[in-house]
Amino acid sequence: MSGTKPSSLWPVAIQWSAPRTVTAVIIIALLAVLPMIASALESSYYVSFATRVLIYALAAIGLNFILGFGGMVSLGHAMYVLLGAYAVAIPASHGVTSGFIHVALAVGVCVPLASGFGAVALRTSGIAFIMITLAFAQMLFFGAVSLKDYGGDDGLTVAARSTLGGLDLTNNTTLYYAVLVTVLLALYLSWRAVLSPFGLVLRATKSNPRRATALGHPIFRYQLTAYVASAVVCAVAGVLLANLTLFASPAYGAWTLSGELIVIVILGGLGTVFGPVVGAIILLALEETLPTLIDATLPDYKSNWMLLLGLFIFFVALLLKRGVFGSLPASVRGERSKPELP
């Protein structure tokens, strides 16, 4: 067994020559040099598009932590993205531009809110959990709509990007790298957490919550902690999204966005740490290219590309059981090493 530690009874999770690992490394390398390629092509648009992809990936990494590893199907995680975006826009409208304050506010509001929502939602499970998370998100959505002083339905623009110490986020490339680093950090943290004793119990709550409880694990504590952590990641994604678009609106918390986050997680591969990045790339690239493709063939229907997207999602759910990234072998010899990773 490659990479077995002498004192360990276990194969180490990462196998560097496995297709999954190789794919992840290539993708990360490409992301790292992307701004240089874009500037060589003199197409700055790709940088902001890639930033958006990574922000979606970040939110999906958050969701994946509970969906992929804890089996908690939240159909309301966009609400935390919404929260993060308003944590930038509202202070900014009062002239508070410090990114540290924005993040602190986002996290500071997200933790108690997600704890409350999570505590109620986790009293249920299965289908009721799906629906109650959706309902909470609607509640926050309408809450944002009711903020008449902050644009109500229309949302509000952000005058300038957050200031973050010496980082100049007004530079698109700098913002891109800030987002990329955040994504890599989130990947690393979730990977560590998944393999940790905490992660072992979390994965067990997905696989067999009854057994985990009967063994003596207080699974509610594990689930709630994971839920709050995942919400915080989405809130940070919201902070970044408001910085990218210089805008925050109730639409950021729309339930369709929550649905898209689930699509991203599934598309990448449920229960893989790196899957959300792959899923975000595929979904957003599709949303970006579909209108162009249709325009080239059936120009009359250019605006109806969502029809194909809907069918695509339907068939992903029906056919793609392990996701694109999840379908790649995680080990070289075909022996399945469990926590599959990046």
Binding site: V263, L307, L309, I313, V316, A317, L318
Partner: peptide
């Protein structure tokens, strides 16, 4: 085929159908 699958797949597939039907009506 979805009846025997878990709720996650059902949610996803029918979410796709919503987008499909909305667009179909629009067309």
């Amino acid at each position: 085929k979805l009846y025997a699958r878990d709720h996650l797949d059902q949610v996803l597939a029918t979410f796709g159908l919503i987008l499909f039907f909305n667009e179909l009506i629009r067309i």
